[in-house]
């Protein structure tokens, strides 16, 4: 398997509708994400996207780069800053080592940012080559 130098960038607008959909999927109705009045009383000042909604954009970048059958094997990350409601979430990644077509997994360092360049999420993901879904 060829391991490209960079992940294809994926994007998602953190619209109120997108945040609401994600809240319904996770049943996480924390008012920090959904209630402008509540969020205004917090240090964030306005609703913010769920951290794992931002992370979902990274999984999309992986799927766009490698196809739906290639899966993450492991990941580690820190949530550095919130993504404000309405922001454009972008996920990118760079291969951490030399390309090795025989490698079963490959590490990519990634960031998830808004359009102002503020990093919301950073870490690494190890991607398993084709066949990682065979167990299911």
């Amino acid at each position: 398997m060829q391991w490209p130098g960079n992940l294809v960038e994926a994007q998602l607008r953190a619209s109120p509708e997108a945040i609401r959909l994600y809240a319904e999927i996770t049943r996480d109705f924390n008012p920090l994400h959904l209630d402008a009045g509540f969020a205004a009383q917090t240090p964030f000042g306005r609703p913010i996207a769920h951290g794992t909604l931002s992370l979902a954009v990274l999984w999309e970048a992986i799927a766009v780069t490698f196809g739906p059958d290639v899966r993450p094997a492991a990941a580690e990350m820190r949530f550095l800053a919130p993504i404000a409601e309405g922001a454009l979430i972008s996920a990118t990644g760079t291969r951490a080592g030399a390309d090795d077509p025989l490698a079963a997994t490959m590490r990519y360092d990634f960031t998830v940012s808004d359009e102002a360049g503020t990093q919301a999420l950073a870490g690494f993901v190890e991607i398993a080559g084709g066949g990682a879904d065979a167990a299911s």
């Binding site: 924390n30 509540f38 917090t42 794992t52 993450p72 990941a75 580690e76 990350m77 990682a132 167990a135």
Partner: peptide, 20 residues
């Protein structure tokens, strides 16, 4: 119940390849 206002600060993950 979890309180309102919790913040997710860090995460590690391991996937086996199984899905649903």
């Amino acid at each position: 119940p979890h309180p309102d206002g919790n913040i997710h600060a860090g995460q590690t993950l391991a996937f086996t390849g199984r899905s649903l």
